[in-house]
Amino acid sequence: MELITAPLITVPLTIEQPKFKVMNGSHSLNPHIVVENLNIFIKGNHILKDINMTIPDKSITCIIGPSGCGKTTLLRSFNRLHDDNVDVKIKGKLFVDGEDIYTKDTEVTHIRKKMGLLAQRPCSLPMSIIDNVVYGPRLHGVRGRRKLYEIARHQLVAVGLWDEVKDRLKTPASTLSIGQQQRLCLARGLAVEPEIILGDEATSALDPISSKTIEELFVTIKDKYTVVLVTHTLRQAKRIADYVAFMYMGELVEFGTADQLFNHPKNQLTKEYISGGFS
C-alpha cells in the first residue's frame, strides 16, 4: 500500500537516477524484462514461438519485423493485455524486475502500473485534459487538488504540451489534435510513475512533426525509463534504438545493440530485411 503513496510526488525528473553503463557495451546490461520460452497461441495458431530475450533497462529497445510477425502480440504480453481475450493461450515465463508476472498470485493492476502503453492511435479518456493526466494517480490513491495539479503540470511539461494547453486544462481531451492527444497519452502514462514505456507503433498515425516530437521525447526519457517500441519503419529504429530485436514469422531471429544489428547482422534474414529485401 505504501509503495504507491509515498514516492509519487517527488520522483518525476527531479531525482537523479544512478546511471548504468548500458551504452558502453553489451556485457554490462541491467536486465529489466526477461522473456523465457514464451509461446503464444491465438485460436490454436502458434503466433509466438519460443521467444527468449532480455530487455535492458534505461534504454530504447525497438522490435522490428514485417507485419504479422508477432511483434505487437509480444509487446502486449508484457503488460498482460491478452488477459481478457479467451482465444489467447500463453505459455512460458516473463519476468519484470525478476518477478514472474504470469503467476496466479500476480495482481494484474500492479503489473500494468509499472508500464505505460502508448497505442497506435491516441485514445484520450472521455474527460478533461487535466483529468486525463491525473486519472492514473487518482486511481492509485493520490488525493488533493494541488498535488494532482502539480503532477499534471509536471508531466505535461515533460511531454512539451504544457504551453499549448495550460489555458484550457478543463476542456475535453478530445478537442486536441491527434498529435497533441498522443503526447497527452504519454503524459498520462508517465503520471502513474511507470518503469517501462511500451509503444505500439506509437507514431504511425501522426503527422511528421508530431511524430518527430514523440520520437525526441522517447530519447529524452530513456534516462529514467525502459522504453520498448514496436516500429514498422526501419529508419525510426535506426534513429533512436539502443537495442533492436528482429522478429520473423513468430520467432525472434536476432537481438543485439543497434550497431550490431544494423551494421553487422549475423543472420541472413536480418541482412535481407534491413537492406530492404522484403517487408
Binding site: 503488460n79 493485455l81 481478457d84 493492476t109 500492479h110 500494468r112 502500473k113 508500464m115 505505460g116 502503453l117 497505442a119 492511435r121 485514445c123 479518456l125 472521455p126 474527460m127 486519472y135 492514473g136 486511481l139 492509485h140 497519452c185 498520462r188 502514462g189 502513474v192
Partner: peptide, 26 residues
C-alpha cells in the same frame, strides 16, 4: 466502445470496475 479505450484505461492499472466507470462516462 473501442477496445483501445478499455486497453488505455487498463494499462494505467485500472481494475475492471474502474474501467467500467470510464466506459459509463463515455
Amino acid at each position: 466502445i473501442p477496445v483501445e479505450l478499455i486497453e488505455a484505461t487498463k494499462s494505467l492499472g485500472a481494475t475492471n470496475y474502474e474501467t467500467i466507470k470510464v466506459i459509463v462516462r463515455q
